[in-house]
Amino acid sequence: MTEEEIGLLEAEEHPLDGYLRKGRIPHIWCPGCSLGSVMTVIIEAIKETDIDPKNISVISGIGCTGRTAGYLNFDSFHTTHGRAIPFAIGLGLTDPNRKIIVISGDGDLASIGGNHLIHAARRNADITVICVNNFQYGMTGGQVGPTSYKGQFQTTAPYSNLEEPFNLPELVKSCGATYIARWTALDVRRVKESFVEAINHKGFSFVEVLGACPTTYGRRNQLREGIAILESFKERAVIEHGIDTEKVAISKEGPIIVGKFVDIHDKPTLTDNLLSIQRMATASKDKGA
């Protein structure tokens, strides 16, 4: 987030008034962090969808990104570490008209919550998952994570990380996700377009936003300023819509492939399937079975 944006959030009158909870701002995020900007874009995207705010629920797990739900003035749920997705599925199934947006970090969604991520994709659950990937665990002080690339330094990878990172778009695609996009936090306009598409999408939609964490990622990896991280994203980002997600893994110095990778519309969702089962059950009950 830029100084200007922070200033906007602290101003008395603000275009986002009503969408942020009164008395919750200023937020806890560090200067130079992408999360404030991502939160603003989420609000803009929700506004653009024209969905009745009453029908929107936002669910987060634990971590810096996990704090997002609590700032947003919708029905908002800050859950336990990794468990935002199953909480969101239970909540969403109680009303097919409810739009469910999960926003959390890479560690929360792909490590401790990884099992729920892949199964939600497999079920084509009717939720939008926004994963802000900052390549490590920020809130706990910069430990290595499931998306840390080879050669990355973190507090628990003091000799550098030697493990392969998850390629998140490929992971969720192989499990059945029906909408997948990735952008850097710098590309606000395209991030917003993808958020709108993802929220309007029927079924499991996944948007990975590569975010800057200057505090615990940048300073250990020669990218001390948030802007330096974003600059590096900008230099390396290559838009490749529809590319095979096998080819979008992130490495230390290679290109960062961004774009909309998957957008499928004809696959039954978890809600569709459960409603079909209700019809089958009712028919079977009426037959006296």
């Binding site: 669910i59 969403g92 459960l274």
Partner: peptide, 20 residues
């Protein structure tokens, strides 16, 4: 819904309860 594990199961019922 048969979930992937018991952690998801309990999280889902909390969510459903907040759905009313």
């Amino acid at each position: 819904v048969q979930f992937e594990d018991e952690i998801a199961s309990i999280a889902s019922i909390l969510g459903a309860s907040w759905g009313g």
